[in-house]
């Protein structure tokens, strides 16, 4: 299995590397370096270096994964897929080749940014791989869900809709959901007026709960999902990780694993209509 996955990974990696898109990604890395790490400006902070290149890594991984997934979705791959005992091997190869390619671009930027850049001690150097890798892997898996290779029926809406709800939900406060509580109160009143006193009372209680701290509870609960990201940025800026904070990359990897399992299930069971480029 490992040999089949590596063979496919190499094939997909080479096909992107030798393409115009591959060159564009390297140029994008150079442009990013020129803008955010201009050699003419002062030495950047270590936190700036880690966070900015980390964010770049996540972004470029998302784009590269979309490109590799597009190539993996070509009809030229039918004979290759027929040889695999499991389709998931093809998906894994897509993920590995995209990660490897984006790490190459990110590594190039990281090396260039060291030119008149921050001086690292060994401890801080050791922080970087788990931070960048975990975020890159999550970005790659999200990109797989955004690609035609994996997406099936409403899966994109489900994954990215849930993400949007979580992002919006963590910002929930009584003031920014005032419209919602007003509507809930009206629905409650309507039920009361039509004689459904029990249901109306329940709905009114919900409205009151949202106004009196319930909204903050919802926001805090949904915000929990984004805990690792807040923790990583806080710890990188502070310059050290407390033991609990050090778990943040592992939690991100857990998210990535769950999303990859979902992607694998979608890809393994969908009808494959590969694109004739």
């Amino acid at each position: 299995m490992a040999r089949r996955i590596l063979t496919l990974s190499g094939y997909l990696f080479r096909s992107l590397l030798l393409s115009v898109a591959g060159i564009i990604y390297f140029l994008l890395g150079l442009a990013f370096w020129r803008i955010f790490f201009d050699p003419g400006q002062g030495t950047p902070e270590m936190a700036y270096y880690i966070l900015v290149i980390g964010v770049f890594g996540a972004g470029i991984t998302f784009l590269v994964t979309l490109s590799v997934a597009g190539r993996a979705h070509g009809a030229a791959n039918y004979p290759l897929l027929a040889r695999l005992p499991s389709r998931v091997e093809h998906l894994t190869a897509t993920l590995i080749s995209a990660l490897f390619f984006s790490l190459l671009v990110q590594g190039l930027l990281a090396l260039l940014a060291l030119f008149r850049g921050p001086v690292f001690d060994l401890g801080r150097m050791a922080e970087i791989p788990p931070l960048w890798l975990s975020v890159n892997i999550l970005a790659a898996v999200l990109a797989l869900h955004a690609s035609d290779l994996v997406a099936a029926s409403w899966s994109r809406i489900a994954v990215f809709g849930s993400l949007a709800v979580l992002l919006f939900g963590q910002e929930v406060t009584p003031s920014n959901i005032e419209w919602l509580t007003m509507r809930i109160s009206r629905i409650g009143s309507w039920f009361m007026s039509t004689g459904w006193v029990g249901i109306g009372d329940l709905i009114n209680s919900l409205g009151r709960w949202l106004q009196t701290g319930g909204a903050e509870t919802i926001g805090a609960l949904l915000g929990l999902v984004f805990w690792p990201f807040h923790v990583i940025s806080d710890a990188v800026i502070a310059g050290y990780f407390r033991p609990a904070q050090a778990l943040a990359p592992a939690v991100i990897l857990l998210y990535a694993t769950l999303l990859f399992m979902l992607a694998a299930d979608l890809f393994a069971t969908k009808d494959l209509y590969l694109v004739e480029h």
């Binding site: 089949r4 096909s15 070509g74 039918y78 004979p79 027929a82 040889r83 004739e276 480029h277």
Partner: peptide, 29 residues
């Protein structure tokens, strides 16, 4: 194990004939 020849003749055009077949051979274990 299945060998499949599709109707449409689509290949990774950048590869050479032998390299392509070597890749298929590796995928065939």
């Amino acid at each position: 194990a299945i060998g499949y020849k599709p109707e449409r003749l689509l290949f990774p055009n950048q590869l050479r004939v032998r390299a392509y077949l070597q890749m298929v051979a590796r995928l065939s274990d």
